[in-house]
């Protein structure tokens, strides 16, 4: 009892240390947010408050187009990754076949391989089969690197899965498809959702792979920003970044909430 209490007490030293950690993590982000409201175009001194850059950002048609591209690519690649990845995980769980261990460990290659090497490999692959870079190649590229994450999270969920629950559903008159949608999928959904979230965030902020596999008409937001900061960081990039941070926080919170709700039920 005595010991437990001590752990729970806040010591001024640890509070100070925790503050330092958070400052280190989040100060750069606060700087970006602060400068997005700066009247000066230079990111050196704060001269006054304005929302002008937000207006300018929305007027920038190229920027908006790349934003739309990013969303399309992210949603499409996430949906594909989730479907393929979940099926892959289920197949690896349910069936025994030759070279199973080799196939399952080969899924980690896209994760451990240097992203640049992977991106160049994709570039060479697409050009060697004479496919010009477009939204389609971009989506395919994103699926290749985000799908393994879905497989991993869904497999983790399946590790504790009791097969007799599926048998019970079959026994009660459900065919394979009904069993999957009424029993299997709801039970593995926390794994599917967290895998999907990983895939989504990886697709949203990917630069390296997108740089090599995007066509001129399919520039994504990270690529656009990269192009813009070459000429110096302008305040409208700050404004855009602020909105992206906000968006990420909202997505993260909803995902945590949904997941918490699902897991609490079981």
């Amino acid at each position: 009892m005595e010991k437990r209490r001590k752990v729970r007490e806040f010591k001024p030293g640890s509070v100070f240390y925790a503050c330092l950690v958070y400052l280190f993590l989040y100060l750069p982000i606060f700087v970006v947010i602060a400068f997005s409201f700066n009247t000066s175009e230079m990111n050196i001194t704060f001269e006054g408050f304005t929302v002008e850059w937000y207006g300018r950002m929305f007027e920038n048609r190229q920027l908006m187009q790349s934003f739309v591209n990013t969303i399309i690519v992210a949603v499409a690649s996430t949906a594909l990754s989730v479907i393929i990845g979940t099926l892959c995980a289920l197949g690896l769980y349910k069936f025994e076949f030759k070279l199973k261990s080799m196939i399952s460990s080969s899924l980690y290659i896209p994760i451990v391989i240097p992203e640049l090497v992977f991106a160049i490999a994709l570039l060479i692959f697409f050009s060697s089969i004479h496919v010009s870079m477009s939204m389609v190649t971009l989506v395919i590229a994103h699926v290749t690197f985000s799908m393994p994450f879905v497989v991993i999270t869904v497999r983790a969920r399946l590790a504790g899965f009791d097969k007799s629950i599926e048998e019970a559903a079959r026994d009660l008159g459900a065919n394979e498809l009904r069993t999957f949608f009424r029993v299997t999928l709801p039970m593995i959904s926390p794994g599917v959702i967290s895998g999907g979230m990983l895939a989504l965030t990886m697709s949203l902020d990917d630069v390296v792979v997108s740089f090599f596999t995007a066509g001129p008409e399919s520039q994504t937001l990270p690529l656009k920003i990269l192009g813009m900061v070459r000429k110096g960081v302008s305040p409208d990039v700050n404004a855009l970044s602020t909105l992206m941070i906000l968006g990420t926080i909202v997505i993260l919170l909803t995902a945590t909430l949904i997941q918490g709700k699902l897991e609490k039920k079981m």
Binding site: D162, S164, I165, A169, R170, D171, M187
Partner: peptide
């Protein structure tokens, strides 16, 4: 699912 028999499983196998 096509047989008119039902099973009670050892570990209950309820839908969680």
């Amino acid at each position: 699912n096509e047989r008119n028999v039902n099973t009670v499983f050892q570990n209950y196998a309820l839908f969680p």
